[in-house]
């Protein structure tokens, strides 16, 4: 009889603890004003500033890995979407599309993933191996690229960008700081992936494009592939050369 009572007592404690935790979250959110819900409470993002300088300056070693964003998206769905929302717009946890997150360095995001924000309910994610955490960082940062390209796309619809303006923009890219990197897509899919990664201009390789279709270099007609690729560049507001 005593043992049964003990078992029931422990079950009750477990349920009460669950309730207490859930209610605590609710009352905290309830007592704050509407603009201070975790989704948009600016102080949530202050944790990013706590990343040490050395950690903040770490570059993402997978920034050039074309599969990192796709893998990061799957990891996000699996581990993060429950709190941050399916499209990272924020749920129990803050929005990852916010300016504070998108302006953070890859190193700062990696540091937050590794250390969590334990006092605010975000667990440490060092359980995920380092490359997976970098893949997550790549995905989170790609959300900004999509935002920018969407914004730019809508601008393109309103303002007609002339060939002359495109040429000027393309010329300006050569004068920017650092090395100007311009990758070569070879079909529609690679064009979209590279555009999604945030490259400001794309070039084409006639040999690679022809090779994909089983043709020799120079055997590609305008109708067989180049048009689709040019259309994609146009749609994403990218400068393109042939």
């Amino acid at each position: 009889m005593k043992a049964r009572l003990a078992a029931l007592g422990l079950c009750a404690v477990l349920v009460v603890a669950s309730l207490a935790f859930a209610q605590q979250g609710k009352s905290v959110a309830g007592s704050r004003s509407a603009e201070r819900t975790p989704r948009n409470d600016a102080s949530v993002y202050s944790e990013l500033a706590k990343a040490p300088e050395k950690a903040r300056l770490r570059p993402n070693p997978l920034s050039q890995d074309l599969t990192a964003i796709a893998a990061g998206r799957l990891l996000f769905e699996r581990h993060c979407a429950e709190c941050h929302g399916d499209s990272a717009e924020g749920k129990k946890g803050p929005s990852l599309r916010a300016e504070e997150v998108q302006n953070a360095t890859p190193g700062a995001l990696f540091w937050i993933l590794t250390n969590g924000v334990v006092r605010r309910g975000m667990p440490v994610w060092s359980r995920l191996p380092e490359p997976q955490r970098w893949q997550l960082v790549a995905y989170i940062q790609s959300l900004a690229v999509k935002n920018i390209s969407r914004t730019f796309e809508s601008r393109v619809k309103c303002i007609s960008v002339t060939q002359k303006e495109k040429a000027a923009r393309f010329r300006a890219l050569h004068d920017g700081p650092g090395v100007f990197v311009i990758p070569n897509p070879w079909d529609v899919a690679s064009t979209r992936i590279l555009a999604g990664l945030g490259f400001e201009a794309l070039a084409t390789s006639s040999a690679a494009s022809a090779c994909v279709l089983g043709l020799r270099d120079g055997g590609l007609t305008r109708g067989s592939g180049a048009c689709a690729r040019a259309h994609d560049c146009e749609r994403d507001g990218l400068a393109s050369i042939s």
Binding site: T67, A70, A71, L74, Q132, Q135
Partner: peptide, 8 residues
């Protein structure tokens, strides 16, 4: 594997 694949 340390890196996740991009497939479900």
């Amino acid at each position: 594997a340390l890196k996740a694949s991009g497939n479900r």
